[in-house]
Amino acid sequence: QPRSDKVKSKCLESYGGRGQKCGGGDSPCPFPGLAAGVLEMRVKEGSKIRNLMGFAMARMQGEKTGSAVVFTGSGRAVTKTITCAEIMKRKVGCLHQMTKLRYKVVKEVWESNQGAASEMTVHRTVPSISILLSKDPLDPQEPGYQPPETLSALWEDRAGTEPSAQTTYKRPLGQLPYSGFPHCKKLCLEEEDQTNPA
């Protein structure tokens, strides 16, 4: 794999910076059985969160317009995509979530900067994420499902201790520099032991 990378970058050098990204065709919807009219927010690297959220929130909060929204993003926009979904979950509440990860194939067309008509296409795979947020219940058996108002299914056994742990950590500044962290961790574990049997 490293070898092919090297070849590619060498090629691209002579082709100059005229790369043009094209989507990898029409990637199929990661959520089969989803109604056709569902709003899909395509989050890009340069998208402003306030623009995305302004639009998506208006649609979600409108009475009859929408009961679900999909946020998708790839590459460096993945973090922003998650942030959008997290903000919406916090603001709207009671949303069922389904998260899907996959590789997306991006076709890049590189034009030669020597003026010749030669073109080169490069297929790259970038990780992408799709997050479905729905007011209606989703299939809990499907991998990637997250019920409303919980940290996550992965943390089921700890979810009860979460609020208490949070308050423990908001201590006044100055008392606890970094040296205090192993102590904090221990505290957290103790609390867990106490609350688990309840």
Partner: peptide, 24 residues
């Protein structure tokens, strides 16, 4: 990003035997 990449790489190298369930 790196966590997703690792998960997808693991899945790809397992020839489909592994499944992913992501939570945010």
């Amino acid at each position: 990003n790196r966590a997703i990449n690792i998960a997808l790489q693991l899945q790809a190298s397992s020839q489909g035997a592994l499944q992913l369930a992501a939570n945010t």
